[in-house]
């Protein structure tokens, strides 16, 4: 059981990193990765929303959706959207500075595919409550890791004499590709025993 949870965590964090291996959550990855500081906060906010999503989805899957499978997608979307709304209000109240720093990006988390993807993966793999939480934690950590790596690289590349054609998204994608290449080293982690 323990090793199963460890594997879920490691797999979702690095082996099948949401951003670098599954292309989920690219909007914040490309948009909010200019500064390490913001990236960290975005990662934290994401992880938080993921955890809440995991719990909500578990509840939906257990109690509601067996009776109406065709409402799955709509239910997910609406529950997640409302939860993000709540998070937004809580953050606005507790840390206005954080709210200002994340600005328009918090609402973006709603339309962040990573969140919905988590819900779908969790459903397809029929994770238990605990597995779902660990999965959310691992995915969130993975998103945050990718964000921070990208941000620190972008901070340094900002001073580089990048050719004009490559400036902007093309370069960021190249860096993302290189990171993704590097993360291939984690393939098979903890599954060889």
């Amino acid at each position: 059981m323990m090793s199963d949870l460890t594997w879920i965590f490691v797999s979702s964090m690095v082996v099948n990193n949401f951003t670098l291996m599954l292309f989920l959550g690219l909007c914040p990855f490309l948009g909010v990765s200019g500064k390490i500081d913001t990236a960290l906060r975005m990662g934290a906010a994401n992880t938080f929303v993921l955890l809440i999503t995991a719990m909500a989805v578990w509840a939906l899957n257990t109690f509601v959706l067996p009776y109406a499978p065709y409402l799955r997608l709509i239910a997910f979307i609406i529950v997640i959207a409302s939860l993000v709304q709540i998070v937004e209000m809580v953050i606005k109240k507790l840390s206005p500075a954080l709210f200002r720093a994340l600005g328009i990006y918090l609402p973006l988390i709603t339309t962040n595919c990573a969140i919905l993807a988590l819900a779908i993966f969790q459903t397809n793999r029929s994770y238990t409550f605990l597995q779902g939480l660990v999965f959310a934690l691992g995915s969130g950590a993975g998103l945050a890791l990718a964000l921070v790596l990208m941000a620190s690289i972008r901070e340094s590349v900002e001073l580089a004499d990048v050719p004009a054609v490559a400036k902007g998204t093309a370069l960021v994608l190249m860096i993302a590709g290189s990171l993704s290449l590097a993360f291939m080293g984690f393939a098979g982690l903890l599954s060889s025993s």
Binding site: I78, V79, S82, V84, Q85
Partner: peptide
Amino acid sequence: MTDGAATGVAAQTPE
């Protein structure tokens, strides 16, 4: 999301 979404949720979920 705008506030409208929250209203929509109130109609359908117990939160």
